[in-house]
């Protein structure tokens, strides 16, 4: 390694500090808004740090009472979890066999390339038929209906991630298992999946983040507490005439918490996934 001059060191630390501030400040401000008394948020100039901490918004959002804002918010959280859970689970179920098949049969690789092309389609190009289709089957405003749509977003790239995971598992293991008389599904279940568990977990969490973030389809296809997801619910809070900025911020903090935690936990895996899954897709 090259020896750094003092000037270079100073520059590096200054840049690192600036970057840290840039990354953290907006998020920190969201949190500060959520615990500041309403008057602080309309003061001029702004009060940057609250003198008294106001947790009432969190209490309100997290209290399940019939016909309350808390119920609406918690129902949205529940729906987001349900939809994302359904979609991620189903995505793994359809992606595992497909990924394995492609991994063991490189001549099929082009089919995954073709599937990844679906990522290029803007949701607006599919929205009208999907709306009519869901209506036809009575799946509008249902977590299952939305889950099916999300499944189609998650499955192709889950298959990609899994494929690169499967590629890393030597084929000899399978061959010897086969000689011992193991059936195809047994090989997959007992041998491959445990070996690919880390990839599987990465793919699942990654898919979860995508599903949690989705807004457009949820906006169109859900209408009330039975299916409305968290992204739509907080956009409603923010777009409506809620007077208290802190309330909006608190809802944002709560909605952001799960993905932020997941992101921190799997930071390395996300980058690996983006480059490996991304290289090919």
């Amino acid at each position: 390694m090259e020896r750094r001059s003092l000037l270079a060191s100073v520059l590096i630390y200054a840049a690192a500090l600036a970057l840290a501030v840039l990354l953290l400040l907006p998020i920190l401000w969201l949190f500060v808004m959520s615990i500041s008394p309403a008057a602080d948020l309309t003061a001029k100039p702004l009060r940057w740090w609250p003198e008294t901490v106001d947790l009432s918004r969190y209490r309100m959002l997290l209290t399940w009472e019939p016909n309350s804002m808390g119920q609406a918010f918690l129902a949205a959280l529940r729906n987001s979890l349900t939809v994302a859970g359904l979609a991620v689970g189903a995505a793994l179920v359809v992606a595992v066999p497909a990924a394995w098949a492609v991994s063991r049969n490189p001549r099929l690789e082009w089919s995954l390339y073709a599937l990844i092309l679906t990522y290029m389609l803007p949701p607006v190009a599919l929205a009208v038929p999907l709306y009519l289709g869901l209506a036809r089957f009575g799946l509008l405003n249902s977590t299952v209906g939305l889950g099916i749509i999300y499944l189609s977003m998650l499955a192709p790239f889950t298959a990609w991630l899994l494929k690169s995971g499967f590629d890393a598992i030597p084929r000899d293991i399978e061959a010897s298992a086969k000689l011992d008389g193991a059936r195809l599904d047994q090989i997959l279940r007992i041998l491959i999946l445990p070996l690919a568990a880390p990839t599987l977990a990465t793919a699942a969490l990654f898919a979860l983040l995508l599903a949690w973030d989705e807004f457009f389809y949820a906006l169109l296809f859900t209408s009330d507490q039975r299916a409305k997801t968290i992204t739509v619910a907080i956009a409603d809070v923010a777009g409506g005439r809620v007077a208290d900025y802190g309330q909006i911020a608190a809802a944002g903090v709560l909605a952001a918490l799960p993905p932020l935690l997941i992101g921190l936990v799997m930071q390395r895996a996300i980058v690996a996934g983006l480059t490996s899954g991304g290289v090919k897709g």
């Binding site: 709306y131 009519l132 209506a135 509008l140 405003n141 209408s223 777009g239 409506g240 005439r241």
Partner: peptide, 19 residues
């Protein structure tokens, strides 16, 4: 169910489709 004014009409029209 509460939506912002801007979503009120669209939601009403779209919900019709769900029968």
């Amino acid at each position: 169910e509460f939506v912002p004014y801007e979503g009120l009409r669209d939601k009403t029209l779209l919900a019709q489709g769900s029968g």
